[in-house]
Design a protein around this nucleic acid. Structure first.
Lengths: 193, 193
DNA sequence: CTACGTGATGACAGTCGATGACGTCAGGTG
DNA sequence: CACCTGACGTCATCGACTGTCATCACGTAG
């Protein structure tokens, strides 16, 4: 057995989610999180850049998965189809984590500082998506707008997926949401221009 | 003459923008800002909730202007037309502040914490827009998606407006960007479904 | 078997953002 | 004149975050 209990980052993340959930983000000190994980405050900051980051450690992996799916899609795919490829990949990753996602999101929703961090995460996703689209030859401004639209659809669709009582698959909800975004421009309006 | 020099919030905002611009956001302490404005650190926090907020004091006014324009648009307007009404109102407000916007944005772009706050402001704008749309009778999910799409267009169009050398009007750039978002779904693809 | 390097953690001091409690004074009010 | 109020200063404190050095189980070279 090692000198220390294993998986310090994981223990810190678990302790943080519990405490944020029990008594709120602001009312939780880093010292308390560390204590519950059997570590010191200083060690917390060795694993996570700040008190918020502990809830967002999984974001880079999701971003890379999304980007990879977009990059690997068939050559024939139109920009919007690339989003669907990304949606499907991410949906699979989340498939068996709906309850965990609900708990995590309820903590984030309860605190403005955590929402800020969440938005930064989505902005990074958008930037990475736009970059992947450009690498596939999608020109500006289409690349940026497709990426931004994709993030909007993901945001709205994800919110539906974790809504109480919702049981449909994430992939299906994201497709529906994408269709509804498209429908903002009805056929008649489109022909008027 | 009063006991204190007038316009304390304005002096603090000016001093903060200067210092953030000169030596960066993180390298500036609140005490320094207050000192340059001829005030104390404690007084800074009486006018601004935190060190970042001092750059975003104008956001609520812009949000209200946008929402008002949406609310006041003619009954016949479709959801997407309501966005255009909002864009026109906001464009007018920014008309003679392009240089100021450029300086402010360059400060924000240089620091992740300021970007977080910027995103929160846009999220609030989105929520307020969706609410205004619902009050006009726009149903969900159209209201939320229209609002989110509107914010995306504003974000991208605004970035173009402050791009170096750009001289076109904001209203025109926003209309163009909205058209490009619509064009993500080409006629052919739309009929394939 | 011993010495040494390595990596994760503890211990401790310090900076700075943020907040609460309270004192101060110019200007208005009755 | 006595009193109140609003805007600011002063002081004290908490907690997030950082820099630095010490510690020690483990692996490895000799």
């Amino acid at each position: 057995m090692g000198r220390w209990k294993p998986n310090a980052p994981g223990r810190l993340a678990t302790a943080a989610l519990e405490l944020y959930s029990e008594r709120g983000f602001e009312q939780t000190t880093v010292a308390e999180i560390a204590k519950r994980a059997g570590l010191t405050e200083r060690t917390f900051f060795r694993h996570y850049a700040d008190k918020r980051e502990v809830l967002f450690a999984g974001a880079p992996a999701m971003r890379e998965l999304f980007v990879q799916a977009v990059s690997d899609a068939p050559r024939s795919a139109a920009p919007v189809d690339l989003l669907v490829a990304g949606f499907d990949a991410v949906s699979e990753m989340f498939a068996d984590r709906r309850e965990a996602a609900r708990q995590r999101q309820s903590v984030i929703t309860a605190n403005a500082h955590l929402q800020e961090r969440e938005l930064i995460k989505l902005a990074k996703l958008s930037a990475a998506l736009a970059e992947a689209l450009r690498r596939r030859g999608v020109a500006e401004p289409t690349a940026t707008l497709t990426a931004e639209a994709g993030v909007v659809v993901f945001k709205v669709g994800f919110a539906r997926w974790i809504a109480p009582g919702e049981e449909r698959e994430m992939a299906q909800l994201l497709r529906e949401t994408l269709g509804e975004l498209k429908a903002l421009w009805p056929r008649a309006a489109s022909e008027r221009m």
